[in-house]
Every structure is written in C-alpha cells, then in structure tokens.
Write a protein that binds this DNA or RNA. Structure first.
Length: 321
DNA sequence: AAGTCGTTCAACCGCTTTGTC
DNA sequence: AGACAAAGCGGTTGAACGACT
C-alpha cells in the first residue's frame, strides 16, 4: 500500500545534464507539451526520473527563462519581498518575470544574504544584528526553518561582535551601487541608522505584503491593492489591526515616496526604538496564495524600494556622534 | 605546477499541497 | 472521505571553477 517512490529505478542517471539529454527533453516537450512527467523519461528516451526532467525543464530549459545577472531593481524587489514573506521563493519569483524560484533562492543565498549581513542586518528578520543580542529569532511562521540554515552556513558568519561594519558596505560589492548614503558616514551612529533602515525595510515589506494581499486599507475610500492610482486623498494607512498610524496626502507632494517614507520611518523608528523585539509577527501575515495586480504592483515595488535603498537624502543625524 | 580554499549554482531530496478518481 | 499520483516547494548537496598560497 505504500506509495511508490518516484525516483527509484535501476539505471537512472543523476547529476549534470548533457546537451544530448537536453535536446531530447526539449524536443519531446515541444512535440507533446508539458505534463505527465512520470512518463516523459521513458517516452523521451531519457534515463532520468520524471521529477528530474521537470526540474531541468522548469529551471533551465524553458524558453522564457531569463538568466544571468540580476538587475538592481530585481535585487531590491527580492529584498523587499523577502522582508515581508521570508523564504517564499516561489512567491517572490512570481513578481520577477522569467526568474525561477531556484535562481532567486541561489542568488539570495550567495549574494543578497551576505550583503545584508555585511550591512549588519539579520537576513532572516532584516533587523539590525547589533540589536538582536539574543538569537531571538521569531519562532513563528516561515522564518523558523531558515534559522537552521543560518547556523549551518559557514558563509554567513560572523560579524565582528556586534559592530556593524557599515563602511564596507559599498566596497564589499564590486558592482557600483548607490549605497553611498549609508556608507559614507562615521559609524558611531550605525546602530541607529541601521535600525532605521531595517525598520523601513520591515515596514515597507509590511506595506507591500499587505498591499498584495489587499489588507492595506486606508481609512478613506482607497480600494486595495493598488497603491498608485487610489491614493488620491489623504490616506490613513492601516493593516488589519495594525495601524501604521499616519496620514499622508499623496497628491500634495513632489516627492511622494520620500515624504511618505520620512514620516513613516520616523513613526516606525520611534516605535522600534521603544519596543525591543519589534513584533515580527506583523511581518508574517503571509497568505497561502496571493492575487496580485501585477501592473499596479511592479512600478510601486520598484520605486518604493528604490527609495528605500537608493535615496541619497536618507535621513541621518550626525549629531548623534 | 600543485594543493587548498571559497564560491557558485544546477540538481537532488524529502516533504507538502493539489488534483483526480 | 480517502487513497493515490502529480506537481510544487524549500533546504541541502556536491561538482566545477577561480583565486590564492
């Protein structure tokens, strides 16, 4: 009665695919279409299990897959979505057309994760490492699993005790990126700055997440999830029970994002300063499936995240030094 | 030149979810 | 409702490669 394992068979090949195998698979799928993976190996003359065929096709051979370097916008979308969704690679992949979840996952683990760590941020929570003295990883929702992978990863270790080496941020990455506003200042106020950054990221993640889920509702008549079209009047943002607690007139500004975020981050940062163990549960309002207005979301995510990481006017109080 | 080490990423593994009968 | 197959998903592995000694 036990279920038949799908990939157990004699003479089944493992490991890297040859071009010959690729050709066979492509040719078969072109002729017969996707699906019926269990039977494909036999019919296509491949000594592979069906699962392996499906993965090879989905992650590599499929014609509409975009490969190669990730753009800056893509990186920021990944960071933003990861802040709100955690390791939901397939969810993140849905917002990066032509990228596979596997590729995003790899890119996160090999690049973005390290970059966050270099910035003194916990890649799990997107909060400053400096402020998380105890491994107070929120044991709720999807972040649990990654905590294990954190401890096992030799690549993600350790920052010099509690100090955030912010001056290295822009140099740790060969690609010129506009992190200058973060890296050009003295490091004494690093913790405070990073707290703000992390708070922003987490809060932005909240907003994006809520926006995608349709739970971001202004107390006025704005209808979710569209952020850009609906914000025609002063909107008071609220997510379920979580009241962001601010009003903003999106029409009355030349720099919507900066002003909104300035006000928003001040609010959030104050709260974060006062509340140790910023309630991560607020970030974890994941839903099983997300219906997203792609047209509405993409420009917003990009511009919002651009603001988050790019804005050279990032408020920074040097008097604290 | 040879050995070591670190990084990357395709592929695998095992579990979960979804669909069908 | 339950059993089963197929597909989806996320964590992990290991081969390949480049940098360094």
């Amino acid at each position: 009665m036990s279920r038949k394992p799908c990939c157990v068979g004699e003479g089944l090949k493992k490991g890297a695919w040859t071009t010959e195998e690729d050709k066979k698979l492509i040719s078969y799928i072109h002729e017969h279409g996707e699906g019926g993976w269990r039977d494909i190996p036999q019919k296509a003359g491949l000594k592979r299990c069906g699962k392996s065929c499906r993965l090879r096709w989905a992650n590599y051979l499929k014609p509409d897959i975009k490969r190669g370097e990730f753009s800056y916008e893509e990186e920021q979308i990944i960071i933003m979505l990861h802040a709100s969704r955690g390791n939901k690679w397939s969810v993140i992949a849905r917002h990066l057309p032509k990228r596979t979840d596997n590729e995003i996952k790899n890119y996160w683990n090999t690049n973005l994760k390290k970059r966050l760590i270099d910035q003194g941020l916990d890649p799990l929570t997107h909060k400053p490492l400096a402020s998380t003295h105890e491994p107070a990883t929120p044991k709720t929702s999807e972040f649990q699993d990654d905590s294990n992978s954190e401890s096992m990863s030799p690549k993600s270790l350790p920052l010099s005790s509690g100090s955030c080496n912010i001056l290295e941020i822009s140099n740790s990455d060969e690609t010129p990126r506009n992190y200058g506003s973060l890296s050009s200042k003295e490091s004494n106020s690093t913790s405070e700055l990073l707290n703000k950054v992390a708070t922003r990221a987490a809060s932005m993640g909240n907003i994006i997440s809520a926006s995608m889920e349709g739970t971001l509702i202004p107390s006025t008549t704005l209808s979710p999830p569209c952020l850009n079209d609906g914000l025609s009047e002063t909107s008071h943002f609220q997510m379920d029970e979580f009241d962001i607690g601010m009003n903003f007139d999106f029409n009355n500004s030349e720099h919507d994002f900066s002003q909104f975020m300035e006000e928003f981050s001040n609010n959030a940062a104050e709260e974060a300063d006062n509340i140790i163990g910023y309630d991560q549960d607020l970030l974890l309002s994941d839903v099983s499936s997300t219906s997203v207005d792609e047209d509405g979301m993409m420009p917003n995510i990009i511009s919002w995240s651009n603001y988050l990481l790019d804005d050279s006017d990032f408020s920074y109080d040097t008097n604290q030094d």
